[in-house]
Simulated scan of single mutants.
Amino acid sequence: MIDGRQRKNIQIGLFVEIVQKHHQISGELSEGKVSKILTKSLNHPYGIKVQLESGLVGRVKNVIE
């Protein structure tokens, strides 16, 4: 399993599952392709924040291989 908390593991075009801010409590996941990487730091304890091609923004929970 690829770690979504490490920026080096996330690339534009990757298919990922994210959790949006308003779904953090329920843990509901959305999936899509990464269009932008929004987190500047090398890692983040809750996941790297990305924007998907659909426009959704959230933190990466899983990278789908």
Rank of each mutant, 00 (worst) to 15 (best):
N9G: 04
V57G: 04
Q6D: 07
K21A: 15
D3H: 07
E65Q: 14
L42C: 10
N43C: 14
V63N: 06
V16H: 00
E65Y: 13
G27T: 07
S35I: 11
L56A: 14
N62I: 02
K8C: 12
V19L: 03
N43P: 00
K21L: 08
I18N: 03
I18E: 04
M1N: 12
E28L: 12
R5P: 04
M1C: 12
V60K: 01
R59Q: 11
L14I: 13
K33R: 11
I64A: 04
Q6I: 13
E17T: 09
K33P: 04
G55C: 09
Q51E: 11
H44M: 02
R7P: 01
S30R: 12
L29I: 04
Q51S: 12
K21W: 05
G47V: 00
M1F: 13
Q6V: 10
I25Q: 09
Q11N: 15
S35E: 11
L52Y: 08
R7G: 02
P45K: 11
P45F: 05
G47N: 05
E17C: 08
F15Y: 14
K21T: 13
L52E: 06
S30L: 09
M1Q: 12
Q24S: 10
G4C: 06
E28K: 12
H22T: 15
I10A: 01
R7C: 06
E28R: 08
L29S: 09
I37H: 00
V63E: 01
N43S: 15
I48A: 02
G13V: 05
G32R: 00
E53V: 15
L42K: 15
K33V: 07
N9C: 03
G32H: 00
Q51A: 11
T39K: 05
Q11G: 15
L38N: 09
G27R: 07
L56P: 03
I2P: 12
Q24M: 11
S41K: 13
K61M: 13
E31Q: 07
K21H: 14
L38T: 00
S30G: 04
E31T: 00
V60M: 07
H44A: 03
I12R: 14
S26T: 10
G4N: 03
D3A: 10
Q11D: 15
K33D: 10
V34N: 05
Q6T: 03
R5S: 14
N43L: 11
S35V: 06
V16D: 08
M1G: 12
S26G: 10
Q24I: 11
H22F: 12
G55R: 09
V16N: 02
E28S: 11
G27I: 09
R5Q: 10
S26P: 06
I2Q: 14
T39S: 06
M1I: 14
V50Y: 01
G27H: 10
I48N: 02
S30Y: 11
K40R: 15
L29V: 04
G4W: 04
L52F: 11
R59E: 07
V16Y: 03
K8S: 15
V63P: 02
G47E: 00
S41D: 09
I18A: 06
R5E: 05
Q20Y: 05
I25P: 00
N9W: 08
Q11T: 13
L56Y: 12
P45W: 08
E31R: 08
G13L: 01
S41W: 00
I12E: 05
Y46I: 01
L38Y: 04
V60G: 01
V34P: 05
E31P: 00
E28Q: 13
S26V: 04
R59V: 04
I48C: 03
Q11E: 15
G13Y: 02
E65R: 12
